[in-house]
Write a protein that binds this DNA or RNA. Structure first.
Lengths: 195, 195
DNA sequence: CCTGTCACATACGATATGTATGCCACTTGA
DNA sequence: TCAAGTGGCATACATATCGTATGTGACAGG
């Protein structure tokens, strides 16, 4: 057993966890690398050795959060009655997850600014491909119109994530959530062969 | 005539124009205030006096670009045959305008990170309200289902802006644009009473 | 003509990032 | 078991940028 590699993996986890808290609470730009490494019981030396630079650290954090979101959405979608309801459930799951302040601040606000267009991230690509597969299946079924699957998946995901931002910053989020979900389902039904 | 005030207004315009170039080319974080003020023939003293801080300068730039986008979208929408086609045309106009690298970098990527949720910006609120008014009218017409107008407007705008990001970073933007517009129109038709 | 105000320039301090260097623990091979 | 080497991490330094505090010169009003 390699004590060396396990310790390194532990330190990576510590740094990611600490960065996740710091980025969520203060935002990427305001978060100091000295502070967050100290909170993890390390120094910036470990950080630069493991992640290259501050961007690399954010990428690791975003990847972790994105993977959690993708896993949750997929499990929710699989639990639905059929593929169409699964698609709607996945969208709703994305909106719910994105209501978490941590997700909004890191993935929706700072992520695109620092890392560029989200659709180019490896993790987001997983989510998009999952949605795209479902849509392709539904088109073969004859449930959906023959729309471009990639474009359709991107539009649905984009609308869902944007909706979460809007709901969270509204005066009464609890009241806006059901209205928004209703509108989202209506929107998605535009792809249906028969409404 | 007050030479004083006109000169100040000129300097404000110079700074905004210079900042717009710098933010578009290097991004908000990487753009140096010393450089962009020097390019305008001024110093940071003028900048802090006029805009308070770097955020204030970005807000001014975003407001200018957003106003241009809103004006263009509105004019395109008004030129359409009816209100429903106008809604679709506005969405298409937003996607087209957001294909400009300057708009993407400043308004879609850096803007949300630095200024927070776009739906809270004064300029974006103008756009959303315009779309919302059109939707309310179409609901009264009986053209659209009785969906929440605010939520519907937000979802359409969000999908359009996200689509532009996606198209721009795709391998072949020219080929993706028509496919995306088609999917967008289908999506919006989910709000129609009869497809 | 004189005085005050204001838009802007200049000087300074604080802080954060990235790099270069050094050290110590652990691994590896004989 | 021991010795050499590797590498993960800490430390020190150089650089650059932001925000503030202070100064100054020109325009406006009396």
């Amino acid at each position: 057993m390699s004590t060396r590699l396990t310790k390194m993996a532990e330190n990576r986890e510590k740094l990611i966890a600490s960065a996740r808290r710091a980025f969520a609470q203060q935002g990427y730009a305001a978060a100091s690398m000295d502070s967050l490494t100290a909170e993890a019981g390390l120094t910036r030396g470990a950080l630069y050795h493991n992640f290259g630079d501050k961007r690399g650290l954010l990428a690791a954090v975003v990847d972790q959060i994105d993977s959690e979101m993708a896993g949750y959405a997929k499990s929710v979608g699989a639990r639905a009655g059929d593929a169409w309801l699964g698609l709607l459930a996945e969208g709703a799951a994305y909106i719910e997850k994105a209501l978490d302040p941590e997700v909004r601040r890191i993935v929706l606000l700072d992520g695109p600014s620092v890392l560029g267009d989200p659709s180019q991230w490896p993790s987001q690509n997983k989510c998009l491909q999952s949605t795209r597969n479902t849509i392709e299946q539904l088109i073969k079924d004859g449930t959906l119109k023959p729309v471009d699957p990639e474009a359709a998946a991107m539009l649905l995901n984009g609308a869902a994530l944007n909706a979460a931002l809007w709901i969270a910053s509204s005066a009464n989020p609890q009241a806006m959530l059901p209205k928004t979900l209703e509108a989202f389902n209506l929107l998605a039904s535009g792809f249906l062969v028969k409404g």
